[in-house]
Lab assay of single mutants.
Amino acid sequence: KKYKVVEVKENKDGTVELVVENENGEKKKITLSKEELDKLKAGDTVELK
């Protein structure tokens, strides 16, 4: 499934919390490390299994 990044929030521990949404409007929260996030920004599309 493809999800669009709608919100990006940095946590104090250096991880980043993303809120992503698919075309049905379903939202998910995922947490990434700073390194994983470096290639993402709001409006990008991510694929989740």
Rank of each mutant, 00 (worst) to 15 (best):
10 E>S: 05
5 V>L: 04
21 E>T: 06
47 E>F: 03
27 K>L: 10
19 V>D: 03
19 V>Y: 05
13 D>P: 00
28 K>C: 15
4 K>P: 04
47 E>P: 01
19 V>S: 07
37 L>W: 12
9 K>N: 12
49 K>S: 15
7 E>Y: 05
37 L>Q: 07
14 G>F: 01
14 G>D: 03
16 V>P: 00
7 E>G: 05
1 K>M: 09
31 T>E: 05
5 V>T: 01
28 K>F: 15
25 G>I: 00
14 G>H: 02
47 E>G: 03
36 E>G: 15
24 N>Y: 11
17 E>K: 02
43 G>R: 02
49 K>H: 15
19 V>Q: 06
44 D>E: 10
3 Y>E: 04
24 N>I: 09
5 V>R: 00
43 G>L: 04
2 K>Q: 08
29 K>I: 14
19 V>C: 09
45 T>G: 02
49 K>T: 15
42 A>D: 08
35 E>R: 09
24 N>K: 11
17 E>P: 00
2 K>W: 06
15 T>R: 03
28 K>N: 09
29 K>H: 12
34 K>Y: 14
11 N>P: 02
9 K>V: 12
2 K>Y: 08
41 K>T: 09
33 S>R: 15
27 K>M: 12
38 D>Q: 06
49 K>P: 15
30 I>D: 00
5 V>N: 01
40 L>Y: 14
11 N>K: 05
10 E>P: 06
13 D>L: 01
33 S>C: 15
23 E>L: 06
8 V>G: 01
21 E>H: 03
39 K>R: 09
23 E>S: 06
21 E>Q: 05
14 G>L: 01
32 L>G: 15
16 V>L: 08
48 L>K: 13
5 V>W: 02
27 K>Y: 07
23 E>R: 03
9 K>W: 10
41 K>F: 05
3 Y>S: 06
32 L>H: 02
7 E>N: 04
1 K>S: 09
22 N>R: 04
23 E>V: 08
5 V>F: 02
31 T>W: 13
34 K>P: 09
39 K>C: 11
44 D>N: 06
14 G>T: 01
10 E>W: 08
17 E>A: 07
21 E>I: 09
40 L>R: 05
25 G>L: 03
31 T>H: 05
28 K>Q: 13
33 S>W: 13
